[in-house]
Amino acid sequence: MNLVEIAGKLRQHIIMMTCAAASGHPGGSLSAADIITALYFHQMKHDPKNPTWPERDRFVMSKGHAAPVLYAALSESGYFPVNYLKTLRQIGSSLQGHIDMQALPGIEMSTGSLGQGLSAANGMALAAKLDKKDYRIYCLLGDGECQEGQVWEAAMTSSHRKLDNLTAIIDNNKHQIDGKVEDIKNIEPLADKWSSFGWEVFACDGHDIKEIIKTFEQAVKVKGKPTVIIANTIKGKGVSFMETRPLDYHGKAPTPEEEKRAMAELCQIKDFEL
């Protein structure tokens, strides 16, 4: 499978998992699918057979509600069997509604209460520097999440400590639960904000995997300061009725009928076995 096909597969898993669970967050999982694909299937060094490999790159998913896309990527990478995905949100499952590092190998930090992941990512980046290790830390945040004050406390820490081994990615899908981010509490100009906090800012099309990878390559080269990639995305990407009505699918799973329609659209991508 090429990366585009993998991203398509992750999207199929997201739809099937959330439909099976009859709850979950498909919209913000679909918007992050290409970013996660670029990270787990190209950019990051990690070993599914040895999740605690000390030299691995770390991924902190601060927007913990996008759990389905991460579970899909971990299972497709080989951390656990793909058929376990259907246990999402079921009692006793390791696939908690929001990611839990104690429950599932491969999860680097528990999240779900928004705004906290970047601080933890900073801690990991500081530890890497202390131990003179060259692994990198990647942290995915939501755009709505940037309304949390702690994000900016952490942003100051990253630049003050010159954490050039850290790259943050904003899944800039422009929607939050209650409406458009610009209507609820505008975060723009977002690039200027990060820049004024001492970060090197990049922007890319968050659904063009080649462009995402190219941007990662540029970010890695930056020395002396942290890097942030504002990945412009579409909430619900890949499923037409979710793209047009993203607010209906932030924290609501597709019905079985909607699942069929969504899968029909997503299965246009070849190499999919039902």
């Binding site: 906290q116 601080s119 801690g123 990991m124 500081l126 530890a127 890497a128 702690q150 952490a154 820490t157």
Partner: peptide, 9 residues
């Protein structure tokens, strides 16, 4: 949060 990241490492 930073302390947690350091501890996780």
């Amino acid at each position: 949060g930073t302390a947690a990241g350091l501890a996780a490492s």
